[in-house]
């Protein structure tokens, strides 16, 4: 393959991972934005989505399409339930104190990951894509399912945007984000809002995990990369900016794709992690977050 098609492939791969990343990172960003906590277990919710998708699709082996639809509907709900339990019995008890919460979610990370290891096992297992067609380009074939991933991610992002900016729950959420104590004084049940937001963040990660599993296989350690990349995206995009998160997801997703194709994925990650550390030090509101707290 010559340079042109190579670059095209890199951009197409990068776009797919950018969309998946945008959905995952959005979950992290919502949780940070509203609750002011960093959820280190976010990647494990992504992994749970993928692993549950494997389990749910294996329940209906004769109809991969319906199996996948079942997974897309049920896996995020199950993960959201786990998140609510974690919120109620861990985060709430810690009063969402930022540093203690990070340590607690590290604990949660290992509990979820190792529980999956002991129940599901160390194997990486494939899930059949719900649709099966290939786009044939002159230089390479391309799985049509990847377009489905992009489409579904766009739908999820639009739904999230609509939910945050146009609905009553979104309004309540933004009020809580602005000032938890004042919101409480106005009769907003802040604890329930926090639980809902934490669950919503986890569900977004889980949905991304379900979408990705036909491309990537389900494995108990698959949560680490999306976690780190989500950090990168959320920090570069500005810690509570929806638009910034999505723009950053594209920059990171595409550059990750391109650097990975032409150089090495490890180098891409080294650059991304160093970049994020430096942004956090020198531009703590992100490259796109204008407002100073």
């Amino acid at each position: 393959m010559s340079l042109g098609p190579h670059l095209l492939l890199a951009i197409m791969e990068g776009t797919v991972s950018a969309f998946v990343l945008a959905v995952t990172a959005l979950g992290l960003s919502l949780v940070f934005g509203v609750m002011r906590i960093v959820n280190v277990a976010h990647g494990e919710f992504f992994m749970l989505g993928a692993v549950l998708a494997w389990w749910l699709t294996s329940l209906v082996p004769e109809a991969p399409f319906w199996g996948f639809m079942l997974a897309l509907a049920v896996a995020p709900l199950l993960v959201g339930t786990i998140a609510i339990v974690a919120d109620r019995f861990v985060l709430q008890r810690l009063n969402y104190q930022p540093e203690a919460t990070i340590v607690a979610t590290i604990g949660l990370l290992y509990i979820l990951q190792q529980a999956v290891l002991s129940i599901y096992g160390p194997e990486a297992r494939p899930v059949v894509a719900p649709i099966n067609f290939r786009i044939v380009l002159p230089w390479f074939g391309y799985s049509g399912y990847k377009l489905v991933v992009v489409g579904a991610a766009i739908l999820l992002l639009l739904a999230a945007w609509y939910g945050v900016t146009r609905t009553r729950f979104g309004l309540i959420m933004r009020a809580t984000q602005f000032d938890g104590e004042i919101a409480q004084a106005f009769g907003i049940p802040v604890k329930r809002v926090y639980a809902a937001v934490f669950a919503l963040g986890a569900m977004l990660a889980a949905a991304a995990g379900v979408l990705v599993v036909p491309l990537q296989q389900a494995h108990y350690l698959m949560g680490l990369d999306p976690l780190l990349l989500s950090f990168v995206v959320v920090i570069i995009g500005g810690l509570d900016s929806l638009k910034g998160t999505i723009v950053a997801a594209f920059i990171i997703g595409l550059s990750d794709g391109i650097i990975s194709v032409f150089f090495s994925p490890t180098l891409a990650k080294i650059i991304a992690t160093l970049a994020v550390a430096l942004v956090l030090v020198f531009r703590p509101n992100g490259l796109f977050g204008g407002k100073v707290r």
């Binding site: 861990v90 340590v103 607690a104 604990g107 990370l109 290992y110 509990i111 990951q113 190792q114 529980a115």
Partner: peptide
């Protein structure tokens, strides 16, 4: 999956 001990103890301590 012994690392679950790490997670559980971290949580209990915090």
């Amino acid at each position: 999956s012994y690392m679950i001990v790490v997670g559980a103890i971290l949580l209990v301590l915090v």
